[in-house]
Structures are given as structure tokens and as C-alpha cells.
């Protein structure tokens, strides 16, 4: 058997076959703790160039896929545990924790599926991080958490987990429409030394290899996501920043208007897929 495996690997090398692609299990179905997760569905009507939207999970090899199928195997759940600790931690001048007002995080079941969304009182497009920080500064009298750092990502993952399996349905019209249009424009605008747009990889070439990596559609329905690469949760904006660095562009500001707009647009490209937070990716 070992011998056969060696021949197999040698054949790969000789014929230069597409290594990772060959082992990506594209037809696998995602079930987490008995709950089915929709990883492929008809693209939302606003998408002109893609018929079927696919979760990033479908682009991963079976060993990586397996990590997300069992909450114990999923290393992202360690951070959710830390999120629970933080949820219950009393902080700030008003001596409160998240739990003081909200009990457990299940109160926010469904919230993940509609984020980012318009916040009328703030008159702005809000990401999940804004809800967390608004509670901290206004209700708890505590310092805001920094976007893209472990404490914030853990809380955002804990809140996101409550909606796992529910259908992503981000609103794109009304007050948020100008932001959505800006996000769309950013998605298709070439930037950086490599002169590439999001669409070049994630719309024109998903399913194709970029060096040894299998390009996905760049969906964010599983964020914050645990990445094997850095062994921690990665926020949506941190991932955008990483992508921009890869194409040698100067990244926009994490938490800034451009990334907020891009978050809205990219999230809307996943409308119809299940929320997967916290997902596991490469």
C-alpha cells in the first residue's frame, strides 16, 4: 500500500498534475454537529457573472474540511470559549459584562446573517464590531476593543456562532445602497503593483490554482475564520488587508469606509449560503 502511494505521488510529479485540486473534495457535504450547512446555492440575482455561489469550505482538501465538521476538532472553538469568558467578564465604569444585559449570546441568534447593516441611530453602516464596541463604551463604560485582535474576534465569533446554519441575507438597498455600490466598485477595481482586483481571483479564477493554493470565491459567510496558516481567528477586514498585501497594494484601513463597503458587497455575494462561523480555512 505504501508502495502504491509512492508511485501515485511520483506520477503526480512526473505529469505535473494539479496537486491540491486533485485532493479537494468539492462534492462533500458539510454537516456540523448534525446540522446541515448549505455550501452551494444559486447566486443572488445581483451577481452578473456567477451562477452558483460556493462556500470556501468546498475548495479545501478533505483533512481541512474535516476540522470544521466537529466542534471539538475545530480549533476556532477554542477562541469561542475565550469569547464566552470575555462575554461574562465585568469591565468598565458601570461594572457590567455583556452577560449583564444580554444573558447568554443566544439572544443574537440570526444577527450574523444580516451583518453588516444600517444603524439608524448612528446613521452609519455597522459591522458586528461596532455593536460590540458601542455596548462597551455606552453601556459598560469600558474601553473599545481593537478590530482584528483576538478579544474582538473571539466575541464576534461567539455572536456569529449563534447564527450558524442560518441563511445569509444581507440587505443591500435603502440607506446602505451607496455603500454597496462603492463596495462593488472596489471589488472590480484593479489596484497595487500586481494590478489586480478582487474579481480577478475570486470571480474569474475561483477553482483554479494560484501556486499551490486553490482559489475560492472569497466568500465571508464563515468569518471570523480559523486559518491553519496563522492558527488563530481572522476577521473579515484582516483578511481583506492580507489580500491587498498579496497583490502588493496599500491596504485600506481596517474599520475604515472602504473595507466596510467591501464587507457589505462581499457579504451580499454570499446571500443564500449558510453562516458558518467559525469556519476553518487554509
Amino acid at each position: 500500500m505504501i508502495f502504491a502511494k509512492k508511485i501515485f505521488i511520483t506520477l503526480f510529479m512526473i505529469f505535473g498534475l494539479n496537486l491540491s485540486n486533485a485532493s479537494a473534495d468539492e462534492s462533500a457535504e458539510l454537516v456540523v454537529e448534525g446540522q446541515p450547512i448549505l455550501t452551494r446555492t444559486k447566486a443572488p440575482s445581483h451577481m452578473e457573472n456567477i451562477d452558483e455561489v460556493r462556500s470556501g469550505w468546498t475548495f479545501r482538501i478533505k483533512e481541512t474540511q474535516a476540522l470544521q465538521m466537529d466542534d471539538f476538532e475545530n480549533p476556532g472553538m477554542i477562541f469561542v470559549d475565550k469569547g464566552i469568558d470575555l462575554w461574562n467578564k465585568v469591565e468598565g465604569s458601570k461594572n457590567k459584562s455583556c452577560a449583564s444585559c444580554h444573558g447568554d449570546a443566544s439572544e443574537f441568534k440570526g444577527l450574523r446573517t444580516v451583518m453588516p447593516k444600517w444603524n439608524a441611530s448612528a446613521g452609519a453602516l455597522w459591522s458586528m464590531e461596532d455593536h460590540v464596541n458601542n455596548c462597551r463604551t455606552e453601556q459598560m463604560g469600558a474601553e473599545p476593543l481593537k478590530w482584528g485582535k483576538a478579544p474582538m474576534d473571539s466575541i464576534v465569533a461567539l455572536i456569529g456562532l449563534q447564527s450558524r446554519g442560518m441563511t445569509m441575507s444581507v440587505k443591500i438597498d435603502g440607506e446602505v445602497q451607496p455603500m454597496w455600490e462603492l463596495g462593488k466598485e472596489l471589488f472590480y477595481t484593479r489596484v497595487g503593483q500586481l494590478d489586480m482586483s478582487c474579481a480577478n481571483c475570486h470571480e474569474d479564477n475561483y477553482g483554479v490554482m494560484i501556486r499551490a493554493d486553490h482559489l475560492s470565491q472569497g466568500q465571508i459567510n464563515g468569518f471570523p475564520t480559523y486559518r491553519l496558516k496563522n492558527a488563530k481567528l481572522n476577521s473579515i477586514h484582516a483578511r481583506f488587508k492580507g489580500c491587498m498585501k498579496n497583490i502588493r497594494a496599500t491596504p485600506y484601513k481596517v474599520g475604515g469606509d472602504e473595507f466596510r463597503a467591501l464587507e457589505l458587497y462581499v457579504a451580499s455575494r454570499g446571500n443564500g449560503l449558510s453562516a458558518e462561523t467559525p469556519s476553518v480555512r487554509n
Binding site: F72, M77, I78, D81, K82, A150
Partner: peptide, 9 residues
């Protein structure tokens, strides 16, 4: 920092 064990039995 941040060491947290999880067990499934």
C-alpha cells in the same frame, strides 16, 4: 498566556 484546555469524554 491564554492557555485553556478542552476535553471530550
Amino acid at each position: 498566556k491564554g492557555v485553556k484546555p478542552r476535553i471530550k469524554v
